[in-house]
């Protein structure tokens, strides 16, 4: 019993030591980047109406505690109401319809090294031949470690 008790305590000690050593959390990046369109120049704002053929600057602010790496912009139709945005308030939706020639914009970009804040600014001309109606626009950003944040906004494209 004495011998086994001793072993028992030694193993507990090993467990405790193992659990406390080399905890270099300080060096580890455990924070997600942030992404936001809720500022004056942020675009598009929730429920915006965009006109075909016009050119717009899509803008969002991103920041990270360590280093930003890349971002993306995805614009796709929501004619079937399959999703909704993460902004306050509900936008009024058109009736559901079948897509014929929907606009699909899918693009990735990298951010130059060493930045912790950055303003996404993508100039886009909305094609003239695409379907009008409800669209879903989502920005996302990844930091150097691989943490990702997203935000999305419901918009309408009109004639």
């Amino acid at each position: 019993m004495g011998f086994s008790t001793k072993i028992f305590f030694i193993t507990i000690l090993i467990l405790v030591v193992a659990s406390c050593t080399t905890d270099d959390n300080a060096a580890k990046d455990e924070q997600k980047p942030t992404i936001d369109i809720n500022y004056n120049e942020g675009f598009p704002q929730a429920c915006s109406q965009l006109v075909r053929g016009e050119t717009y600057s899509f803008k969002a602010m991103v920041s990270d505690n360590a280093e930003l790496a890349s971002y993306s912009l995805d614009i796709h139709h929501n004619f079937d109401h399959h999703t909704h945005d993460d902004q306050d308030g509900e936008c009024s939706m058109d009736p559901k319809k079948t897509a014929i020639n929907p606009w699909i914009f899918i693009e990735n970009y990298t951010i130059e090294d060493g930045l912790t804040t950055y303003e996404i600014n993508i100039g886009l001309t909305i094609p003239n031949d695409i379907d009008t109606g409800d669209y879903h626009c989502s920005f996302s950003v990844i930091d150097e470690t691989g943490w990702q944040s997203r935000t999305s906004v419901d918009i309408k494209i009109i004639e």
């Binding site: 790496a69 993306s72 912009l73 995805d74 990298t110 989502s138 996302s140 990844i142 150097e144």
Partner: peptide, 10 residues
């Protein structure tokens, strides 16, 4: 999870 995108997906 890397810090790059493919068609807007991480």
């Amino acid at each position: 999870p890397t810090s790059n995108y493919y068609e807007t997906l991480q």
